[in-house]
Design a protein around this nucleic acid. Structure first.
Lengths: 198, 198
DNA sequence: TTTAAGTAAATAAACATTTACTTATTATTG
DNA sequence: CAATAATAAGTAAATGTTTATTTACTTAAA
């Protein structure tokens, strides 16, 4: 049996993400992707059931899983609150600024009904994405360190600005001066932490 | 000369936003829109140059302009900082929770390269969207009330969580309990304010 | 009567997916 | 231990459908 060509599989994945990042989800077509990846359209259908399957797997298996791994690197649920949040911010910023296509798909995940639904289903099935962050926050509520608000509310307060700042980072890559520096990220992280401490 | 039918113009706009909110930008087609709005495809082309023009005008003229107007209602640049931010949050939440299609397109604006580019161009041309907010923040930096960070950074810290919370609000409209209440919004607003005060 | 607004149906291009074929391996045989 | 049968991986080109946009005509009001 002829073995599958791993380089082609990789090309399909990375080029799909590139097209989505540069031209948007609405401009990714199977034929364009095949041509850009240097494969036949049929090859994509050997690896994915259809376009929807490709997009969902790309989002869940490639992007979110890698993002989760990167963000949790060296993080521990038992860290002091401010230290833990800083770790997550620095990991998140470091990963996203070096993986623009992944960041783009994460942004699409917030607006695309397809990806949104896929994420929610996966999040229910597979236990939970970012489960250690959940435990971390719940423990700090219990310990009386931070305000007692629903988890999703605290998640929004703590991490929504980070994604916006990454967006700003990429807006400034074309400009002479980068305003989103590591120092700015650290300052912002301190600000969001301060906001929810009791 | 036959006068244009304003109801049909309105139908095209609102139904386009509905389709985008329910099925995503990638599933809006001119023929589907025409059928759903009860007009001929040609009618859309009388009012818009092409699909791109339709999307950009919807985003800029209908959605962003209305959002700006709603958010600035009763807001004044000279308000005390905490009071001004609270006004913007309450206005923003009140508007978005009652205008899901607009909210959906605003979310798409962050990921779609087309809308993103359109927004930046419009923002440069027309002076500036949300200009009073810009003045408000800059004045409060100058007065030493809040941290001295670039405007876009402060904007992210102050308003990114609000959009995430609105998203959460809509996630909970199908569920038995709504966790994103006016009270939660006020508490969150206080938290982000506290974070950036000097 | 003039004229822009509107319609139904057509057009050409682009789309997701499939068909019919070829290729590169592994496992099996003589 | 070469030859080859079996088989999934791969390709180029085709398929039928959907798409954005246009054509040729009709309608409603100034």
């Amino acid at each position: 049996m002829r073995p599958r060509n791993l380089e082609k599989e990789e090309a399909i994945r990375t080029i799909a993400l590139d097209i989505i990042a540069n031209e948007g989800l609405e401009n990714l077509t199977m034929q364009k992707l095949a041509a850009a990846a240097g494969v036949s359209p049929r090859t994509i259908y050997i690896k994915y059931e259809n376009k929807e399957d490709l997009l969902i797997k790309l989002f869940i298996k490639d992007v979110l899983a890698a993002y989760e791994k990167a963000i949790l690197n060296g993080f521990n649920e038992d860290m002091p609150f401010a230290e833990g949040v800083e770790k997550l911010w620095i990991n998140g910023f470091g990963y996203l600024k070096n993986n623009r296509p992944s960041f783009a798909l994460i942004q699409h995940g917030k607006s695309s009904p397809l990806l949104n639904k896929a994420f929610q289903q996966e999040n229910i099935q597979q236990g939970q994405f970012f489960a250690p962050i959940h435990s971390f926050i719940m423990a700090n509520i219990k310990a009386g360190v931070i305000k007692n608000l629903p988890f999703d509310v605290l998640r929004a307060l703590l991490f929504a600005p980070l994604l916006d700042l990454v967006n700003e980072y990429f807006d400034h890559t074309d400009r002479p001066v980068q305003i989103i520096t590591d120092e700015v990220i650290t300052t912002c992280c301190e600000a969001v932490t301060k906001g929810i401490l009791k």
